[in-house]
C-alpha cells in the first residue's frame, strides 16, 4: 500500500506522517497523533462527533480523507487551551448539565464555538438549527442549547457597553 506523506499543523504544531490515502482525518488524529478527544460516531458525516476545526472552520474529520489534509491546519478539542470562548463554553456546559456520557461533547464544543463566533446575534431557534448536525443521545439537548445561549448572552452583555463606549 503506497502511503502519502502528509504535512499538517495540528494544534499549532507541525506534524509529518505517512498515511494511506483511504485513511481519514479522524483516524489520523486518533491513531497516529494520539489525539483521542475527537470521536467517531458514524463515519458517514452525519452525527457530528468527529467535528474538528479544519483550516479555521468546523469540518467532519471522518469524511476528510488523508490527501485533503496535506497542508491543512487542524485544531482539535485538545487545542483550545487558553481560548476564552472555549473556556466559557466549558464552564457553561457544566453549569447547564450539557453532557452525560461525554462522547458527543468534543464535536459539540467545536461546533458551539463556531456558532458563538459566527452568529453573535443568534436566538435559541437558530442555535438549535446550527446544532442540528451534532447528535447527542443522552441529554435531550436542553442543556447544550442553554449553555450556548448562556455564552452568547454573556458576550452580548459584554459587547453592549463596550460598543457604546466606542461609539
Amino acid at each position: 500500500m503506497t502511503r502519502l506523506p502528509i504535512r499538517m499543523t495540528v494544534n499549532a504544531e507541525n506534524v509529518e506522517l505517512l498515511a494511506e490515502p483511504r485513511s481519514h482525518l479522524a483516524d489520523l488524529l486518533r491513531g497516529e497523533l494520539l489525539l483521542t478527544g475527537t470521536h467517531t460516531g458514524c463515519e458517514h458525516g452525519v452525527c457530528g462527533a468527529c467535528t474538528v476545526e479544519l483550516d479555521g472552520a468546523p469540518a467532519r474529520s471522518c469524511i476528510t480523507h488523508a490527501g485533503a489534509c496535506d497542508g491543512a491546519t487542524v485544531r482539535t478539542i485538545e487545542g483550545f487551551e487558553g481560548d476564552a470562548v472555549m473556556a466559557a463554553l466549558r464552564e457553561a456546559f457544566t453549569a447547564e448539565h450539557a453532557l452525560q456520557c461525554g462522547y458527543c461533547t468534543p464535536g459539540m464544543l467545536v461546533m458551539a464555538r463556531d456558532i458563538v463566533l459566527r452568529l453573535p446575534d443568534a436566538d435559541e431557534a437558530r442555535v438549535r438549527e446550527e446544532l442540528s448536525g451534532n447528535l447527542c443521545r443522552c441529554t435531550g439537548y436542553r442543556g447544550i442549547v442553554a449553555a450556548v445561549m448562556r455564552v452568547l448572552d454573556r458576550r452580548r452583555g459584554l459587547a453592549g457597553p463596550a460598543a457604546s463606549r466606542a461609539a
Binding site: L35, T38, F93, H97, G102
Partner: peptide
C-alpha cells in the same frame, strides 16, 4: 451540585475503548 466527571470530557480526555491502543 455540578458533575465531577465533566472536566475530562470537556477537554477530550475521556477514555473510551476505541482510544486505547
Amino acid at each position: 451540585i455540578l458533575r465531577k466527571e465533566d472536566v475530562r470530557f470537556l477537554h477530550g480526555r475521556g477514555r473510551y475503548v476505541g482510544d486505547i491502543r
